[in-house]
Design a protein around this nucleic acid. Structure first.
Lengths: 144, 144
DNA sequence: CAGATTTATCCACAATTTCCCACTACACTA
DNA sequence: TAGTGTAGTGGGAAATTGTGGATAAATCTG
């Protein structure tokens, strides 16, 4: 189970080291793909293959299915770790997620997510704000 | 497994080098043909024969199926790589896909697709906008 | 058949990627 | 607190990749 939040740096050669905690679980090979909300997803190979297999069997005759397959498959890339547990972020994924030097790596159960630090902070602030509102309402309604 | 996205150039002699990553999987010969959404499909020989087999056994008495078969089969052409892993794009395919100098080569699991860079970017932006749909699909396919 | 144009094969350069090792920082142990 | 180990970061050298061009073979044309 991949949980926790880490700040790492993306070096000039577009490498990031994955938190040591996650390495055994990911094994030697992981797949990195476009994720939702402009972050990147990192899956252990076996998790991803299941997903890819399903995607690839979607009928080619329907445009929305083709679109989906392209987004996730073309957006994916094998990320094999070097001996120090770092992976390489392909250019197009770096652009997609707008990664700068500092990135956030967080575990979300079966996958990791990689965020640009700034975008992550903004995102989290918003979620937290919403949570306050939610909590307030709950309080008003006497749900505590 | 052919995945990933690469930007390459189509030179004056209508050659493109295929990403090194894909070469072993494609072998010395591939089939290139018209693809859907105005891109080109590139199949490894083995995958192509399966695909062609399927196409040719489609019922001959439905017009749309016949059209389909013609579209893919008549448009196909052998693409043998030179020693540096480049293939030649026939004129009629170059026109069909409106290829200019910069092209995108992306892997969609069992085939490659070749897109004109501009068209690809526009296309992807649109797909990306439908994040809701993507998220939904992810859910359906059990990627959470 | 000669000349011209296209097509194929080969080579060379430059830039990127890959692989390896070194350094620092922090934590845990003795 | 010194010592040991691990984790994260940075950089150098070698190998590979992508691209453009040169030369040779083939095809076309008048």
């Amino acid at each position: 189970m991949l949980i926790g939040e880490f700040t790492h740096t993306l070096d000039a050669k577009k490498r990031v080291s994955l938190p040591a905690k996650f390495r055994k679980e990911l094994g030697k090979q992981a797949i990195i793909t476009r994720g939702l909300d402009k972050c990147l997803f990192v899956y252990p190979l076996y998790e991803w293959s299941k997903f890819a297999e399903k995607l690839s069997t979607l009928s080619m005759n329907q445009k929305d299915k083709r679109d989906n397959a392209r987004f996730f498959l073309a957006g994916a890339s094998e990320a094999d770790m070097d001996q120090l547990g770092r992976i390489l972020i392909p250019d197009y994924l770096k652009k997609y997620a707008e990664l700068k030097e500092k990135v956030i790596i967080c575990g979300v159960y079966k996958r990791l997510e990689i965020w640009d630090e700034e975008r992550w902070n903004k995102y989290r602030d918003e979620v937290e704000k919403d949570a306050d509102v939610l909590a307030e309402r709950l309080g008003e309604l006497g749900a505590y």
